[in-house]
Simulated assay, not measured.
Amino acid sequence: MTTPLPLHPNETLLWEGAPVPGLHRRRLTSFLMLFGLPFLLIGVALFCYSLLLYPQAADLPDGGNALVTTAFSLPFAAFGAFLVLGPIIEARTASRDVRYVLTTRAAYVQRTGRFPSLKVYPILPSTALELERGTRASTVWLHARVERDSDGDLGTTKAGFENIAEGEKVFGMIRDLQGKTE
Rank of each mutant, 00 (worst) to 15 (best):
F72T: 05
A106C: 11
D62Q: 14
N163A: 10
A106S: 07
P19A: 01
G172N: 13
T70I: 01
R133D: 06
F47K: 07
W141I: 15
L118W: 00
T12D: 15
R99M: 07
E132K: 11
F82E: 08
S126G: 07
E147S: 11
G160R: 01
S117T: 02
T29G: 07
L129Y: 03
R96A: 15
P21L: 01
T156L: 11
T135L: 15
R92F: 11
N10E: 14
P87H: 01
R148E: 13
N163M: 04
F115V: 09
T29V: 11
K119G: 02
I89H: 13
Y121D: 12
E166G: 08
K119W: 05
F76R: 03
T104C: 05
V146G: 00
E132M: 05
G17R: 03
R105I: 07
R175M: 15
V98N: 07
Y100T: 04
I174S: 00
G43E: 02
T70Y: 02
V120Q: 09
G160N: 04
I88N: 01
L67Y: 02
F115D: 14
L131M: 03
A77F: 08
F171E: 10
R99G: 05
A77R: 05
L7W: 04
G167Q: 01
P4T: 12
T135V: 13
L13H: 07
Q178I: 04
V84Y: 12
S117D: 03
T69A: 14
P6C: 09
F35P: 07
L7I: 09
R27H: 05
S138K: 05
A159Q: 14
P61C: 00
L53H: 10
G134S: 01
G17A: 10
F72A: 11
A144Q: 07
L124E: 14
M33G: 09
R114G: 15
G172T: 01
Q110D: 08
G17Y: 08
S95G: 15
R111L: 08
F171I: 02
V98A: 02
L37C: 06
P87F: 03
A165M: 07
P9V: 10
L51F: 05
E166S: 07
C48P: 01
P38E: 01
V68Y: 10
V120H: 00
L52C: 04
P38G: 03
R136F: 10
E162S: 09
L51G: 02
V101C: 10
P21W: 04
E162K: 15
K180H: 10
D62I: 00
A81M: 08
L51E: 03
P87M: 08
H24V: 00
A159R: 10
T156W: 03
A45R: 06
G152S: 00
K180V: 09
P116M: 12
G64N: 11
E132H: 07
A58R: 10
I88R: 00
P9L: 15
G167K: 02
I42T: 09
L40V: 07
L13M: 15
L83A: 08
I164Q: 00
L40N: 11
G155Y: 13
G36W: 04
W141G: 04
N65V: 12
P38W: 04
F35I: 10
V120P: 00
G36L: 06
L154Y: 14
R111M: 09
F72N: 02
R145E: 15
W15V: 00
E16G: 14
F72L: 14
Y121Q: 06
T2M: 14
L124H: 06
R133P: 02
K169I: 09
